[in-house]
Each structure stands twice: as C-alpha cells, then as structure tokens.
C-alpha cells in the first residue's frame, strides 16, 4: 500500500456500498464539499484498492455479497489504523453497532440518513485526525 499525497491536499474518501444508488448520490455530495472520492459497489475491488492506496476516510456498507463490511472494516484498520471508518447499514442492531466500534469504526450510521449528517461525521473524523496529528507532532 502506498501512502500517496492527497491530490490538491484534498481528503481522500473511499465509499463501498453494493447499492449503486448510495454511491451515485454520495459521490457528488462529497465532491462538492471538496473531497476526493472513489466509489465501489463490490467489496473485492474496494479491498484491492485499499491494499494499494491509503484513504483518509472509508465509508462502508455492512451487509454485502462477498467480503462483508465487518471484514472490510477489519482489513482497512489493519492496513491503516489512522483511517477513519464510517459504517452505514440498513440493518442496524445494537450488536452490529457494538462490534463495529470494537473493530475500530469511528461512527455507525443507520440508513436512511441525511446527507448533511454523514458530511458532519466526515468532518468530525477530519477534526480528530488533525488533532491526533498535532499531538504526534507536538
């Protein structure tokens, strides 16, 4: 995995959801807010992408064919512990939420959700990452 410089200093986000409508609608929203976005509807492709490139933030669905969101979350955190991961799911339960947090998710968002809510979550991750970076530097 390479630790690429963010193009134009933009925060890099990977979105994985097997429902194309979710990717289709999230991508322009994040782009408009100034982020660099890549979207995937199959977890295998997303997995190989995170193997080769580091993303600042990953937004992943939980219930998918093939590699499910929990395994994807685990792998992302193994490869890049600093990456902030947001789990989005239409099948939210207390157990899945707990497990997501245990595996290092930053937040757990139940579908349907407002675009503004997920943008807020991403901004909170950025704040935390800046703070962590400052602490490490200081």
């Amino acid at each position: 995995m390479t630790d690429d410089i963010k193009p134009g200093g933009k925060t890099r986000i990977l979105i994985l959801d097997d429902e194309p409508i979710v990717c289709k609608r999230l991508k322009p929203s994040f782009q408009k807010a100034g982020y660099e976005v890549e979207t995937f509807t199959d977890s295998a492709s997303a997995l190989s992408r995170v193997e080769e490139t580091r993303f600042d933030i990953v937004i992943t669905d939980l219930k998918m064919e093939g590699v499910d969101g929990m395994r994807f979350l685990t792998r992302v955190k193994e490869l890049s512990p600093d990456t902030g991961v947001v789990v989005i799911t239409g099948f939210a339960t207390l157990d899945t939420a707990k497990e997501s947090f245990r595996k290092g998710a930053f937040d757990f968002v139940a579908k349907p959700f407002k675009l503004s809510d997920i943008l807020d979550t991403v901004r909170r991750i950025e704040d935390k990452q800046r703070l962590d970076k400052g602490l490490r530097a200081g």
Partner: peptide, 9 residues
Amino acid sequence: GEYIFDRAF
C-alpha cells in the same frame, strides 16, 4: 432527496 436510502429501507 433529503435522505440517502436503499432498497432495504
């Protein structure tokens, strides 16, 4: 268009 939703919703 207020919410992001999928078929499951």
